[in-house]
Design a binder for these strands. Structure first.
Lengths: 178, 178
DNA sequence: GAGATTTAATTAAGGCATTTACTATCTCAC
DNA sequence: GTGAGATAGTAAATGCCTTAATTAAATCTC
């Protein structure tokens, strides 16, 4: 059974192998391993995120982004929208837009800042707090289902390698959200 | 210098530590390492993707998604929109929408399928092919900048661990795009 | 302390991807 | 072969997130 003759089995995940193979043999690109690492990283992240969103959050009426905002507010709040934007990795405008329905649903609260008339503080309501405990419980169980194929040591190595991958982002002019 | 008193240094990346710490000490969640692994995975993927998109693809007038579609068409094409959707991880409708401007710009070509009157084949034009070689060159250089903090062995371990993380996705009722 | 600059948040407009609904074609059962 | 159901692709509507413009309040300069 020749390896080149199995297009029918190709899917989102295994496409990485095809890419690696063709980039190596047909084009003279120098850094195939870099492509393989980052494609794998992206696709793993997408698969897990899509699964968590559709299994845990959508059924409860929340988007992935809403969850992220509630999550940082839960753990780092009360905080200003600007800081929530940094911690979630969204724009400030996105935080503002996402807040609206969450406030209307009674999960999130906005109160004027203490020392700055422009500022606002986001915090969870009592209901929001209880919701997060239940919600994160379900989220965390499913996270565990995903990660439990790896031993604890493997998980720590994975975290360590990803941390290392990211640490030199200062060494070149990284593009970040403003 | 107490660890609890450094909120000013907290950013998108280091938020993971705060989450880990609070989930461990203040809430009784069982699977903190799972959360740490998947938060790290997501944030690393988001950082790299955002950087590649804004440094390489946006300046050339392409979105990240457009690049993904061109990339799979380049390496696995000519192919049907349905297969392009599977390989990119988008919906068929997204492929249809994305194709339109790419065809208009002369990068992509649609031709009627051979054996099926409903079907269509997507392929790169000659211009699209040349564009991808230049574009992927730039993309690949920047990928290399990212990954070169890791040794070749570390990169292979990372790929292996991510592969392992994904392999048991069949063991529970994974949610995938239809 | 008045005017200019900077900063926080929101609003507005636009882009992109998703879901849902629709059309056309194919397959299969009878 | 005819009709029911499945499948490919597209179109329409919706949602989310981005950038740019706007409003308001702080700070800095002289």
């Amino acid at each position: 059974m020749a390896d080149e003759e199995r297009p029918a089995e190709l899917d989102f995940w295994s496409f990485i192998e095809l890419a690696h193979h063709r980039l190596a043999t047909e084009y003279g690109f120098r850094h195939q391993l870099a492509t393989e690492v980052l494609l794998t990283l992206n696709r793993a992240s997408d698969l897990v995120t899509y699964d968590l969103e559709s299994a845990v959050h959508r059924p409860r009426g929340l988007s992935w982004s809403s969850f992220r905002l509630l999550f940082v507010t839960w753990l780092a709040g009360p905080l200003e929208p600007k800081r929530a934007a940094v911690l979630t990795g969204m724009s400030r405008a996105a935080v503002s837009n996402l807040s609206k329905p969450l406030v209307a649903d009674g999960l999130l609260e906005r109160s004027p800042g203490e020392h700055d008339g422009r500022s606002v503080l986001l915090s969870l309501t009592e209901h929001g707090h209880r919701t997060m405990e239940e919600l994160f419980g379900a989220h965390n169980e499913r996270e565990y289902q995903w990660t439990s194929v790896l031993s604890e040591t493997e998980q720590r190595i994975l975290v360590m390698l990803l941390n290392k991958l990211i640490t030199n982002r200062d060494q070149f002019d990284l593009r970040e959200r403003s």
